[in-house]
Design a protein around this nucleic acid. Structure first.
Length: 776
DNA sequence: CATTGATCGATTTTT
DNA sequence: TCGATCAATG
């Protein structure tokens, strides 16, 4: 351990410098179970990294005996670089996501579960296609049960460790659920047959492996002297069991989280894991990090007031020594266009008049971005939408990777079906279906079936095309297994041999987007080159190092064959997003509240703060309001300096105009913390039952505004028609000729509005200004 | 076998 | 509204 930073007294003190008492306690705590309740902006990452540094530098824990688990790769790399800055070389330390860490264990001993080491990792798209295949095999019409319903139920079952048999039992004769259970069972077999793991499997099978094999269990249990888990409130049951098992021997388990920020129930997070941690471990040391270093007093108090309404939570009260700051701004626009304009104007004003550089617009659902984007574009404000498509999820990139996948794992029928006719080579659905049949009947892979095409009458028609495809795969596989060329070169050969590059070049003549796709493909080659450098240089090495060797020793045993590099590369593309690929800094960041978690901005705009949007309609139906409230808390606590919340009285969403009152969360914010600005010219919101002062103020302002609007109307030339502002969908209306009808939708167009009306004879649209309409 | 119109349906998302 | 997905046609 020669390359660690010096552990002089000065070094030691700097580890604790600037930490508050609670933070110090968390860093210095000996061991045993520890629950660190870290409020938003309380310096959580700092505490974790400093604790790791303390363990290594002061307590002389070898880095390879520390396991630190995060939820995202982004969080992991952040933690790694900050820990490395404090400690020095930490290559041997296991810092990473659950999936990355468990994959390490799985790779080494997957044969004990009946899997081969070159296994594929199925992404959600593969998963869907796998379920489709299973349905076809079972002769189930894939319209009876929605695909997403099946995949999500299977995923939930896996997260809860419910086996197909158990799921069938809990179906209690319900044929719908019974079918899903049978699909689940066949899907598991399907994955095994194809030597593939889906994301849930990576965790579930690792748990199974460790539970069933005492030697492996003992090996990892003794190895990890200290285990740290970040974002513990978002763990699911499998993750909970994994952590529990791995920590069972030394019991030095520090979990860090914030129950108030648990917002991933929909993907299996179980808030009980954090709420019951003390109960599960009676000797737990609980540390509360309640001092916030991010937001103003006002923002914090407003957020506290909102979250305080939740019943099931560990009470926590964030406080700050920071300034009081400006009140929270609330703006109620007349419609979605006005809302977007307000936000965009406000940002434009601040961009030119202040030195602020951080702006984020947050929303509950991504459908809300459209108007915002338009408003920003109109004003020439640059923006970026956070959390779009991953680089590795682009079609052209996935196609190339599918060729590599198939070369590495010839049993991967999903990869095969993806690219057997990409680019087009005359192998259609019929042929693919026939291949599937032959492969199932003969118990061989589809690639093997294609190889034997001439022996099977169903395949004779496409035999020529199939032979050409097999020849391509043979060349690639020969290159992979026999050649000592570089991996990047292999990737380039894939693009050439497959004809993908040629195809894109041809497409460029007619299709402008083909250029981008070609660029992406070339980018993939440089990406592969970069990865290869890292891999051979030992940076990825720790992932493959045998447990108890130093990185140097491990370097000698590492497999540097092309196939090993390819396997590692495929793993990276399956598991890593590319959110770190920083693009030019935009003026404004647009993102969902979910993806804003963990981030902070000087100026935050929370838009669409309306009932049925936030909280969402389905959250209300499912009685999931506490989670929505936590989401609101997360949104508010992203703001450092200024928080603006907006809502619209009418909003065109999913092709319908909705009229929703402002979000109930607004009424939880004490009035003195809010400044309501500007406004609309329409009817007041539906009176809230909360009787909050804010709503009364809103109504007062509103009646003033209405008076003004009425005056303006009187001065303006009188126009015919009806006062559409008082109407809402569902109201009845009369037409001179068509008689009585029901309003379906109202689309404002300035003074006027388009009314979609259902009459006895069908639907018609009218301008509200048309003199032919009258209210009943 | 590839292309085209109808139909459905729509929170949130990482790995 | 908009987009993806899917059955029917040339």
């Amino acid at each position: 351990m020669t390359d660690f930073k010096d552990t002089s007294k000065a070094g030691r003190e700097s580890l604790l410098a600037g930490l508050n008492n609670e933070q110090k306690k968390a860093v210095l705590q000996d061991g045993g179970p520890m629950l660190i309740l870290a409020g938003a902006g309380s310096g959580k990452t700092r505490v974790i990294t400093h604790r790791i540094a303390h363990l290594v530098l002061e307590r002389h824990v070898p880095p390879w005996r520390i396991l630190a688990i995060t939820f995202t790769n982004k969080a992991a790399s952040e933690m790694k670089s900050r820990a490395a800055a404090l400690i020095g070389n930490i290559d041997a330390m296991w810092i990473g996501t659950f999936h990355t860490m468990m994959l390490r264990i799985l790779r080494q001993d997957c044969h004990r579960l009946g899997f081969a080491p070159g296994f594929s990792i199925l992404d959600s798209d593969d998963q869907r296609r796998a379920v489709k295949d299973v349905l076809k095999d079972m002769g189930i019409d894939n319209t009876t049960i929605p695909l997403r319903e099946i995949t999500s139920r299977i995923s939930f079952a896996k997260n809860e460790m419910v086996s197909p048999a158990e799921l069938a039992r809990t179906a209690h004769g319900n044929p719908y659920l019974g079918t899903i259970a049978r699909v689940y069972e066949n899907y598991v077999a399907y994955c095994k047959r194809h030597n593939g793991f889906d994301f849930d499997d990576i965790l579930l099978y690792t748990l199974q492996l460790l539970r069933e094999h005492e030697d492996l269990r003992a090996r990892y249990q003794t190895r990890f002297l200290h285990i740290l888990v970040d974002e513990y409130q978002d763990t699911n049951r499998v993750q909970y069991e994994l952590v529990k098992l791995l920590a069972a021997h030394h019991r030095n388990l520090a979990v860090v989280g914030d129950d108030d920020q648990s917002i991933y129930r929909f993907r299996g997070a179980d808030i009980r894991n954090i709420l019951d941690f003390e109960g599960d471990n009676p000797d737990t040391t609980v540390i509360r990090l309640e001092q916030n270093y991010r937001s103003t007093k006002t923002i914090l108090n407003a957020a506290n007031a909102v979250i305080d309404k939740n019943e099931s939570r560990k009470k926590k009260q964030l406080w700050t020594e920071g300034e009081t700051g400006e009140p929270v701004t609330f703006y109620l626009a007349s419609d979605h266009v006005g809302e977007a304009a307000f936000v965009a104007n406000d940002i434009r004003k601040r961009l030119s008049s202040t030195a602020d550089t951080e702006y984020a617009i947050l929303y509950r659902a991504s459908a809300l971005t459209r108007n915002i984007e338009a408003a920003l574009r109109e004003r020439g404000i640059s923006y970026a939408i956070f959390g779009g498509m991953r680089f590795y999820d682009r079609k052209e990139v996935k196609d190339v990777n599918a060729y590599i996948r198939l070369a590495v794992n010839p049993g991967d029928n999903l990869a095969l079906t993806r690219i057997i006719n990409v680019p087009k080579r005359g192998i259609g659905d019929q042929t693919i279906e026939a291949l599937r049949e032959v492969s199932a009947d003969m118990n061989i892979s589809m690639l093997e079936a294609a190889r034997q095409a001439s022996m099977h009458p169903q395949l004779s028609r496409a035999a020529g095309a199939l032979a050409r495809f097999v020849a391509i795969m043979d060349r690639l596989s020969a290159l992979l297994h026999e050649s000592d060329t570089s991996f990047a070169l292999l990737v380039e050969r894939v693009t050439k041999e497959s004809g993908l590059a040629k195809q894109l070049e041809a497409d460029m003549l007619t299709d402008l987007s083909a250029r981008t796709r070609l660029e992406n493909m070339n980018e993939l080659i440089s990406d592969a080159l970069e990865f290869e450098k890292k891999y051979l240089g030992g940076e990825i090495l720790a992932a493959w190092a045998d447990d108890f060797k130093s990185p140097e020793e491990a370097a000698e045993t590492i497999d540097d064959s092309l196939i090993a590099v390819a396997t590692a590369y495929l793993e990276q593309t399956a598991l890593f997003s590319d959110q770190d690929r920083a693009e030019n800094r935009p003026d404004v960041n647009l993102m969902t509240i979910h993806s804003a978690k963990g981030l902070e901005f000087q100026n935050v705009y929370l838009v669409g703060a309306e009932e049925r949007i936030f909280p969402s309609a389905q959250a209300e139906e499912n009685d999931d309001l506490e989670e929505e409230r936590r989401l609101c808390y997360v949104a508010m606590t992203r703001a450092k300096k200024r928080l603006t919340i907006t809502a619209a009285r009418s909003r065109l969403l999913y092709g319908r105009t909705q009229y929703n009152p402002p979000s109930r969360f607004l009424s939880d914010i004490p009035d003195e913390l809010v400044n309501e600005v500007g406004g609309s010219k329409q009817a007041p919101p539906r009176q809230s039952d909360s009787g909050s002062q804010l709503f009364r103020t809103l109504s007062k302002l509103d009646s003033l505004r209405r008076k003004k609007a009425d005056e303006q109307k009187r001065q303006a030339p009188e126009h015919n028609g009806i006062v559409w502002q008082t109407l809402k969908p569902g109201d009845s209306i009369n037409h001179v000729r068509l008689g009585s009808g029901e309003i379906l939708a109202i689309t404002p167009t300035g003074d006027n509005a388009i009314l979609r009306i259902r009459f006895a004879g069908g639907e018609r649209r009218f301008l509200s200004g048309s003199g032919e309409l009258s209210v009943e």
